[in-house]
Design a protein around this nucleic acid. Structure first.
Lengths: 340, 340
DNA sequence: AAGGAGAATGTAAGCGCTTGCAAAAAGAAT
DNA sequence: ATTCTTTTTGCAAGCGCTTACATTCTCCTT
């Protein structure tokens, strides 16, 4: 795991007959070097195939220009669009983004945070508030600011940018109830260490309560993330004596699984059973019938998150959380219940 | 972009009343430190929230334990599964993977290669052979080995692991022709700097030639990557005087777009028009009707790629390319042509 | 109790880079 | 020409860490 021969600044300096300081300046503030010299140096850089050593540079300059982000999964596009926008905006600020994924596991997330910190992350974008307080204190001691995304919680002192998962889901559930559904089931991702999942469940219960339904009557199925999990949870729900008339899913991936299984079971959607999602990923429009879901402004969130985090890292000024609005995306998987 | 207060090895050493060498040993080869000392040191590490500085460590140890991978896109799951397996296998070898994406652009890929090299990548996984030779010579001068994946080309001296895109597509096209299709259209990703796309087109032409069809009669539509692009290309193809009876797509994402547009145009698949894909990503099974495509053993490829690359980085022994087999995944979007 | 082997720890050099300061070179003004 | 600026370049310290080597401490052996 060694790179013995890689050329160094000194090699370039020797080849160009200048000092290492001059080479360094050529690379970092070219205007401070007269053209003749600069050309000579850059030629040497090219000829030798020189590549600066980031570690050494960061060490000497005490600056890394690096931001870290840890997302629960890269396997699907739930976070892809937002992170893409985040990265683009960071690049405009000449910052590099280091991405890692945690597979929805708190321990892995903690690991990745340490790894990226070691590698110079000067600020972090993390998803959701829920995590061990040790991580926050570690980051505080390291002097690394954290911005939480995909949620908005004005009551949490930790700055965040995102949307109100609870009220968003409440709005969708209200629409569901308005259509006449009384027997509601829900497939949720694991609620431990996942405030988004919890809030979405609460949102459904809120709506039930507001409409005079018994919140406890919600048939809740908790499962791991993934299409197959969603499908299996759907089967379990449908195995009940009296079937629900609607299955609300905590996200589009679970909904895709539910929909797939519904088709396998020859159930017509939405005539026999309604299904809803959350996130509005690209997949939602491709499914047949197209998925009714909650649209989240991912790109906007990513872009604004980058700006906020840059401010936090540079200015150190405490940032106020920002709330983004979601919208109901009515498509074809939600209809009135069969017998109303 | 500074982290002023972050504790250093020296801070820990002082707190634990030992030398920095001992702290370093505690962290890297704990068995060389007597337990009493070790406990004291680790306690100090914990108390201070110490995190090692990767750059400094790499500098001193002349070792980075880091591998880089550059994939064309993270936006969809074409590469996700393979890279996931790749990463898991690397982790088993105590190596960290740094991932970057190039948006299918050679210049961005070159950039990312330089960036990750600077950050210590001791080996690279790259997709496909096609790239500027300068990049290869740069990497050679840096002493960084490269493994090419997602393709298998025994004629290329560069070691690779993957499958034969050309013969895989030929097999699918042969099946298409066997079903009676004579009027074949194809939607391909851009062929410039993309040997996979080129090979897949060649594969279709091969099959046509073998069956006595004129390869030049293939109606080829080249487009950028993405669902919408696939949909638009499909529209363009269908605007022709005499419509093709089958549209073969260079990958599943384009096929998803084509299928979506076909539905919008009220065409029945496969009765009115057949559509095929390539890759067999998760989406292929979710589409309605489910997509006929070529299955690629992504996980296997990722795992084996990791093993090969580790060998290359450690042993330096030149590796022989490995071929993996694809299989036809017949599902529901391919049928006989309408009038046969 | 002395000597020696082996284990535990410390000392200090140096990895490749940036940057404050000083020196040298190049113009500008007299 | 001479002096004064201003620009361009070099010198050298030091960023946080690992590791070869030197030193000290333990614990046997005799």
């Amino acid at each position: 795991m060694i790179r013995p021969g890689a050329p160094t600044l000194e090699d370039v300096a020797r080849a160009a007959q200048v000092s290492t300081a001059t080479v360094s300046r050529c690379l970092n503030s070219p205007e401070r070097v007269v053209e003749a010299t600069r050309l000579r140096v850059l030629a040497a850089v090219d000829r030798l195939g020189y590549s600066p050593n980031f570690g050494a540079r960061a060490l000497a300059a005490r600056r890394t220009d690096t931001i870290g982000a840890i997302i629960p999964t890269m396997e699907n596009s739930i976070f892809a669009r937002g992170i893409q926008a985040f990265q683009e905006e960071l690049r405009a600020h000449k910052l590099t983004l280091l991405i890692a994924s945690s597979s929805y596991r708190p321990d892995q997330e903690a690991d990745q945070i340490r790894t990226l910190t070691a590698r110079g992350a000067a600020g972090f974008l993390l998803i959701g508030h829920d995590r061990n307080s040790e991580i926050y204190s570690f980051l505080k001691r390291q002097g690394v600011p954290v911005l939480v995304a995909w949620v908005y919680d004005p009551n949490n002192p930790q700055p965040s940018i995102g949307f109100d998962n609870r009220s968003s889901m409440r709005a969708l559930a209200a629409r569901v109830i308005e259509l006449g559904h009384r027997d509601i089931a829900m497939i949720s991702a694991g609620q431990a260490f996942n405030d988004r999942a919890r809030d979405r469940v609460s949102g459904v219960r809120d709506a039930m309560e507001l409409s005079g339904l018994e919140p406890q009557s919600l048939r809740l199925m908790e499962t791991t993330y993934g299409i197959e999990s969603g499908a299996d949870a759907f089967s379990a729900l449908m195995a009940a004596e009296t079937r629900p008339t609607v299955v609300m899913c905590g996200n589009d991936v679970l909904a895709a699984g539910a929909l797939k299984r519904a088709r396998q079971m020859k159930l017509r959607v939405p005539e026999d059973i309604s299904i809803t999602g959350f996130d509005d990923i690209e997949l939602a429009r491709l499914l047949e019938p197209a998925l009714t879901t909650v649209h989240v402004p991912h790109r906007e969130m990513g872009r604004q998150a980058a700006r906020m985090l840059v401010d936090m890292v540079e200015g150190g000024a405490p940032q106020a959380s920002i709330e983004l609005q979601t919208t109901l995306q009515m498509r074809d998987t939600l209809g009135p219940p069969r017998t109303v």
